[in-house]
Write a protein that binds this DNA or RNA. Sequence first.
DNA 1: TATGAATGAGATTTCATTCAT
DNA 2: TATGAATGAAATCTCATTCAT
Lengths: 192, 192, 192, 192
Amino acid sequence: MAIRQKSTEKRTALLQATLNLVNDNGFHAAPMSKIAKLAGVSPATIYLYFENKQDLINNLYISVKATFSTHAFKDYKEGMTVAEGFKNIWYNIADYKLTQAEEAYFLSQCDNTTMIDEETRQEGLKHLQPLLDLWKRGQEEGLLKNTSLYQLYAFSIYPLAFLMTMQKRGLYQWDTQNLDIVFQSAWDSIKK
Amino acid sequence: MAIRQKSTEKRTALLQATLNLVNDNGFHAAPMSKIAKLAGVSPATIYLYFENKQDLINNLYISVKATFSTHAFKDYKEGMTVAEGFKNIWYNIADYKLTQAEEAYFLSQCDNTTMIDEETRQEGLKHLQPLLDLWKRGQEEGLLKNTSLYQLYAFSIYPLAFLMTMQKRGLYQWDTQNLDIVFQSAWDSIKK
Amino acid sequence: MAIRQKSTEKRTALLQATLNLVNDNGFHAAPMSKIAKLAGVSPATIYLYFENKQDLINNLYISVKATFSTHAFKDYKEGMTVAEGFKNIWYNIADYKLTQAEEAYFLSQCDNTTMIDEETRQEGLKHLQPLLDLWKRGQEEGLLKNTSLYQLYAFSIYPLAFLMTMQKRGLYQWDTQNLDIVFQSAWDSIKK
Amino acid sequence: MAIRQKSTEKRTALLQATLNLVNDNGFHAAPMSKIAKLAGVSPATIYLYFENKQDLINNLYISVKATFSTHAFKDYKEGMTVAEGFKNIWYNIADYKLTQAEEAYFLSQCDNTTMIDEETRQEGLKHLQPLLDLWKRGQEEGLLKNTSLYQLYAFSIYPLAFLMTMQKRGLYQWDTQNLDIVFQSAWDSIKK
DNA sequence: TATGAATGAGATTTCATTCAT
DNA sequence: TATGAATGAAATCTCATTCAT
């Protein structure tokens, strides 16, 4: 049963409802009935748009990941230098985590649990390719540490998820003021 | 009037079973019946050792967090210099994530989701105090970046969770060989 | 867009099944699974019509109490004299306990145990108001004993529950023949 | 497994605990574990004194019924006139319901539900024999209504259960003051 | 397409009773 | 006798999914 073209609104409402419920109480506290109610449709309607619950979650992940990477690379150009490019992308990502905290928190949950299919997760990773290419160039130019790209990611991008989570829990106040010093850490950790 | 006593073995078996099942498929795929079966007891027996499922999970978190921090600070001494102390603790933590991957993965899930009570999470945080004290000293000595301790954590410790997860998923090969270059990133990110 | 509607029939069947099972062996021997089976629905369906078991029992009480009082006052008119009115109501109640023995027995259980919520019980009491008003009038006219209305109820109405129970247990044969002498007791007990 | 002679204390404590719990929340909210805890013994110990839960309840009923009838006939003598004898017994019963409200409430629950075995209930009825004999005499003397003894009971004794229950629920204040007018109702209802 | 009703399967939890000491 | 641990069976209730319209 393929996804319908009609009524993108309902589809979007369902994805949004799922995101909110999963964020609030976790995957196991987001029953289909609640999702339907929050989206203002019947439980049966969900199955017109998604095959089953797993498919719904997977699609939500894909969808959020897509807007995330759009945001991340929204004004990045391949012509930029490695330093310029990284700064550009990093600030975009930071901005996303700041302004789209709910989406960011959802992604963080997905990336640290078994909530979504491995296959779907792989697909989500593809979006990062421009950053990986940039890093590879940086390594070739001798600018960046000559190590696994996963390591570069772990130390320069992944920490933002932690800060976002702490902020969501009210333990850390992150704003545009201290963004620069955060960036400094990121850059220091990967530069040679 | 000798009587059978509640066995630590059973309690441990239950915690271990829970960890394994939650790691495999998440909280919602770890039903009490499976936990009981894996631990070799009756479902009803679980309730002799834990109030309910949430209490079981909370206790598991507390328990794993405790062994984690014991490991982290196992040979740390307050007399160490900041650099020495950090290196000592960091390598211990890294070693834990390498050798106790299952426990580490479970903690990562807990820290990035709403699986456990906020109260319980707070309790788990206390264990880190020695590291925070060390960092404070490092900042006073002008050695470390003068920023939130959460930021220092985000960039020097939290990344290890990512590497561990990638390794568990077979995407990243981490061993004692590249530990030093990983440490370099951690140190670079926090040092002034 | 025609849709199946929650059927009154199913709701009624569930209430009836509950009544039968509770009457047979008491509240604790009327599991939801049996109720469902007897009503010809799935256990899960019960929860479409009632919040939980307590709610089901409460609703059953309310429902039975309502038909009871409808029966009790079905041809009572406020214009009747006190003696006429009481006789009218009393015979109606007696008739109900005779012909609707199962419902009557259920009410008797509810009124003598903690099976239903206090709040629900209070609601059930309201139905009696016309009788209480009549009695008040009777007291003002100097016809009835000048005492608590609870006492009047205890001696003129409540005894019918006992007779009904004894009859249900096969210990007492109550029929239209001896109804008059029973009424005599009721009247004697409250008249001045 | 016959009832032991030793440790009447524990047996009594168990009966008392059962009575309290059943009175508070009904039969279905008096699990063996709670009964044991309230009585200060192990659950397993209950089975040294009673065959099973039903046996425990039955024994409690028998036991309470026995003290009840002892109280009811404590100073009744067969030589009394019917009027004297009835007054004597009635006031004793009323006194019991007033002063031993918990026991009385428990009996009321048993008599109006299927909580106890029919056989056990029959046994409990035997205790009333002296009153029944008295009534028979009263009928022969032409003093009392010539009807079923169940009817006499229903109108002269059973109402006391209602008043006791209403009092327990705080709806009716019954004390030694209005006892006489209550007795008047009882007597009026059965006398010819 | 869209729905609210309906459900089978299964989740958590409880409980009367037995076990092992 | 007495116990606390242990449990099989069953209770209440939930939920992803399908049915019938």
